[in-house]
Design a protein around this nucleic acid. Structure first.
Length: 585
RNA sequence: GGGUAUGUAGUUCAGUUGGUUAGAAUGCCGGCCUGUCACGCCGGAGGUCGCGAGUUCGAGUCUCGUCGUACCCGCCA
């Protein structure tokens, strides 16, 4: 062994011991006659001391050390004369009598410290150096502890972890697949799984009635701060269960993780909000419930008014910002600009200021008398000192825009407390969604999601109105996980494929093995999958999932450290039977 | 496919209305220093202002193009 202890564990009680440490040089402080070296490993930092008077040779060697040199030092643990209360090992230091440079190092391009001076781009390029820093090490250790905790909790409840294949058949529903060419079957391709969906359902058919896996999934879609091309799910499936059984089981898992990792407890049950209510009250299918500011429907209140943008709008809604009646012209203009951004897409913003002195000021005062504006205050609950913000337009789009405006106001008013967690279940999602471009229905969740039993007759009449037995776990406006009860009846599955416009042949080609399996006794089953990276980043207090992943990819799906993806040899291409056709834009 | 921001020393940034030799901090190198822990003091080196065109007597600064990066919409459970 290169060491007897780590750099984080020695205390005053160890004084007098002769020990050996190994690690990286964090920093040297050279006084000429005396040199201090901060030695770092992932457990902490311990100070080494060298003295010209007592050991000139070792002291001179210590003066040669640069940042990030890998060294080994043997010496006596001693109480410091000048203690440093800011570090756990600050009461002791090591009088080194033997110093070995195990490996010198070039000066790193950024500082390996709690708060690095390096920018994101540079730190990604030198990811292995960035990961030496304490924040990254904390994140990855948090991730490890959460994974252990999940496995432990589910193991105690009879779940078994089963690995599923990574090279599978492409199923063109849902996200784009990453594909892998087959050398032995030229012209044919595997796909990387978007999730182990069909395999976990087959495991249910096979009688493994409680399955879990912490598993990589792959989706070839455009990326975001919280979306990577490869990401990790906590994937679970249970047989002989109904929706509530699943919600209860995984609400238990969520509570367990909160308690174990953050020491946060939730006494009651998580709220359960139907999709439709989430959309009308929060303009989002993943509402952030850390604050209220619900959307109020004002459509009825403006019928027949003289202002065409309102009179002709399909929907009018507003939110109340507490204490914002004193917003300046500039602040209102900025909000207007915010909602008019192409990403939000509102045409304009209407405001009503209910001033503390009882007066009312509004951008639409010309069209409504004070009584009417007071009527709006009544329905929205706006009080003196509040600001009512109103958007008008197409219902779905306007609700979404109000939802974005609500979040923006939440940010401006500091209503999103990082230390507060409000989990909830969003339930009763629509089963399918009509797409105008391709003139067909698409499954909102996936084609195996069961409709609410009472809605099954509606599949023939108005599939868009059918609710699914599907659910999402949402925490602080982040979709942490989602799942559904699956169809286990091949007749109903066939009907579902009909609704989605698949011919029998298409269904047979894509999902035949699953439909065949269901002929041999499929138990009622359902499951859920959690976005593990998102969950870890939520617990770490981060907005991006990149820093809870050891080697993440950037916006364009590139690994800037490896510089992947990259081209491959002609020889490799030939072997695979692939020719590259460069497309000119 | 679209929107917004951004690119200057190893690093993080400043750079005014287009005008002399492009600055600061930090890091790095050399010297001094026996109780530092953001050590201190003295000195030094370090620049393709992302790249390419254009406007101009003159471009880090203006225009166009291009490449990279970040965030968002579309897309994606």
């Amino acid at each position: 062994m290169y060491r007897t202890h780590t750099c984080g564990e020695l205390r005053i009680s160890d004084a007098g011991k002769v020990i050996t440490l190994a690690g990286w040089v964090q920093k040297t402080r050279d006084f000429g006659g005396m040199t201090f070296v901060d030695l770092r490993d992932r457990y902490g930092i311990t100070q080494l001391v060298f003295n010209m008077e007592t050991d000139a040779g070792q002291c001179k060697l210590a003066r040669e050390l640069g940042r990030e040199f890998v060294i080994r030092a043997t010496g006596l643990v001693a109480e410091r004369s000048n203690k440093n209360p800011n570090m756990p090992t600050g009461d002791i230091e090591i009088f080194v009598d033997t110093l070995h440079i195990l490996n010198p190092a070039e000066t790193p391009p950024f500082t390996i410290e709690e708060n690095s001076d390096g920018g994101d781009e540079l730190r990604m390029k030198y990811r292995y150096l960035d990961m030496r820093r304490a924040p990254l090490q904390r994140n990855l250790m948090l991730r490890h502890r959460m994974a252990q905790s999940v496995r432990h909790y589910l193991d105690l409840r009879g779940f078994i972890e089963v690995e599923t294949p990574v090279m599978i058949k492409s199923t063109p529903e849902g996200a784009r697949d990453f594909v892998v060419p087959s050398r032995m079957n030229q012209g044919q391709f595997y796909a990387l799984p978007q999730s182990p969906q069909m395999f976990k359902q087959l495991l249910m058919v096979s009688g493994y009635d409680r399955y879990m896996q912490i598993v990589k999934c792959f989706r070839d879609e455009d990326l975001r701060a919280d979306r990577q091309p490869e990401f990790t799910q906590i994937d679970c499936e249970m047989a002989f269960v109904e929706q509530d059984d699943i919600l209860n089981t995984f609400e238990g898992l969520a509570k367990h993780l909160f308690k174990e990792i953050l020491n946060v407890e939730f006494p009651g049950k998580f709220a359960k909000i139907p999709y439709e209510q989430a959309m009308t009250e929060y303009g989002s299918d993943k509402p952030d419930l850390r604050f209220g500011m619900k959307i109020t429907d004002l459509t009825e209140k403006v019928v027949g008014c003289g202002l065409s943008v309102m009179a002709e709008a399909e929907y009018i809604g507003g939110i109340v910002a507490t204490g914002c009646a004193d917003y300046s012209r500039k602040q209102i203009d900025d909000l207007t600009e915010f909602v008019k951004k192409p990403q939000i897409g509102a045409k304009g913003l209407i405001y009503v200021k209910y001033n503390t002195d009882g007066t009312i000021k509004s951008s639409v005062a010309k069209f409504f008398d004070a009584a009417a504006l007071r009527g709006w205050a009544e329905v929205t609950g706006a009080k003196a000192g509040n600001l009512l913000l109103i958007l008008a337009g197409k219902r779905d789009k306007t609700l979404k825009a109000l939802g974005e405006l609500r979040l923006e106001m939440g940010r401006q008013l500091n209503l999103m407390d990082k230390n507060k967690y409000i989990p909830l279940w969003v339930v009763d999602f629509p089963l399918v969604e009509w797409d105008e471009e391709t003139k067909r229905f698409y499954a909102i969740h996936h084609p195996f999601t069961a409709p609410k039993p009472e809605h099954i007759p509606m599949l023939d009449i108005d599939p868009g109105k059918v609710h699914a037995n599907a659910y999402d776990l949402v925490i602080n406006g982040i979709e942490i996980g989602g799942g559904s009860i699956r169809i286990h009846d091949s007749g109903l599955q066939k009907k579902m494929f009909e609704v989605l416009g698949f011919t029998d042949e298409q269904a047979q080609y894509r999902f035949g093995f699953l439909m065949n399996a269901f002929k041999y006794g499929a138990p009622p089953h359902g499951g859920i999958a959690f976005g593990f990276d998102r969950w870890v980043s939520l617990f770490a207090g981060l907005n991006s999932i990149r820093d809870v992943i050891a080697f993440p990819k950037n916006n364009q799906g590139r690994d800037v450290m490896q510089d992947s993806p990259g081209i491959i040899d002609d020889e490799q291409l030939k072997e695979l039977g692939i020719r590259i056709v460069t497309s000119d834009k």
